[in-house]
């Protein structure tokens, strides 16, 4: 009886793993097949600035630029803020309060992105517009800041777990050597937790790259790279916002549809490459404990 249960259990968990893997693979394959038309017909012209379906021009550079710049802004704000918060909740805050502070921050993760978008469009973008004296608050910076708030809970929660998982004995050994609490955190706890914290950042990065609704409402949706290119106070377009706005009106099977799929494919490649680079980098820095 027990043996058969074991087998069912094992089969079940194996099946779930295979299904998840298969889904990821299928999405990748479907995206590739659908983007094939655009890749073969548009070719290298995909990496130009002009996007105009009625003239068969499909340049994705401005969308790529938008996605990268929004993500960089979001991470620049969210990483220091998130890791700082995580150090505070796990190392300094008495553990009785930790759970409350953490749940409040995790609440941010539960808010649907359309709500962020609405608040962003109704209030946040108008503040940005009056603060920087802009004609419109729908800018790359606005989307980036809002995105940083959306990915903050991912970084805080997972980094907090990472820091909390560092075995006590290391802290005690460090304290025993006479280090100040600041030095214990900086020289002992953080280096050990580094790998898991990077994992947290990677997950947040994935969300930042893929977030659609809030970004779409806030970024201004114009297929242009601002001049000069670092002027993030101008509107732009991300891959996701472009997909969100245009996938419904492109006919299934058309070159337009295929070009949109290519953008999705590029986005997925981006995530995969970033994940691989981080994995390779982390493999070198071996874990201290175990």
């Amino acid at each position: 009886m027990l043996v058969s249960y074991n087998k069912i259990g094992k089969g079940y968990i194996m099946l779930s793993t295979y299904i998840s893997m298969l889904i990821a693979l299928l999405i990748f394959i479907v995206l590739f097949i659908n983007s094939f038309d655009a890749i073969s017909q548009v070719g290298l012209k995909l990496f130009t600035l002009e996007w105009n379906p009625s003239k068969n021009e499909y340049g994705i550079l401005s969308m790529l630029y938008g996605t990268l710049s929004v993500t960089v802004i979001a991470l620049t704000i969210a990483i220091p803020l998130g890791i700082g918060t995580a150090i505070f909740t796990s190392e300094i805050l008495p553990s009785a309060y930790r759970i409350y502070v953490k749940s409040i921050i995790e609440l941010l993760a539960g808010i649907p992105s359309i709500i962020y978008g609405l608040i962003g469009i109704a209030f946040f973008s108008t503040w940005i517009a009056s603060f920087f004296e802009l004609a419109s608050g729908r800018t790359i910076l606005t989307a980036g800041i809002l995105l940083s708030i959306m990915i903050l809970p991912t970084i805080v929660t997972l980094s907090d777990d990472a820091i909390n998982n560092v075995p006590k004995k290391y802290r005690e050994a460090a304290k025993g050597l006479g280090l100040y609490p600041f030095e214990v955190i900086k020289n002992t706890v953080l280096p050990i937790a580094k790998k898991d914290i990077t994992g947290a950042i990677l997950l947040a990065l994935g969300r930042a790259l893929g977030e659609t609704m809030a970004v779409m409402l806030l970024i201004g949706s114009i297929d242009k790279i601002p001049t000069p290119f670092y002027n993030v106070l101008s509107p732009g377009q991300t891959i996701t916002s472009k997909l969100g706005r245009e996938i419904g009106e492109s006919a299934f099977g058309s070159l337009h549809f295929s070009a949109l799929n290519t953008m999705g494919f590029v986005l997925m490649l981006l995530v995969i490459i970033l994940t691989l680079i981080t994995q390779l980098y982390l493999r070198k820095s071996n874990r201290l404990y175990e």
Partner: peptide
């Protein structure tokens, strides 16, 4: 400067600006 979609999205953007 901006590319928007529905009538109400456009309406909101015009209301929020003073030079649109």
């Amino acid at each position: 400067d901006l590319v928007l979609g529905s009538n109400n999205e456009e309406q909101t953007a015009v209301v929020q600006s003073d030079a649109a």
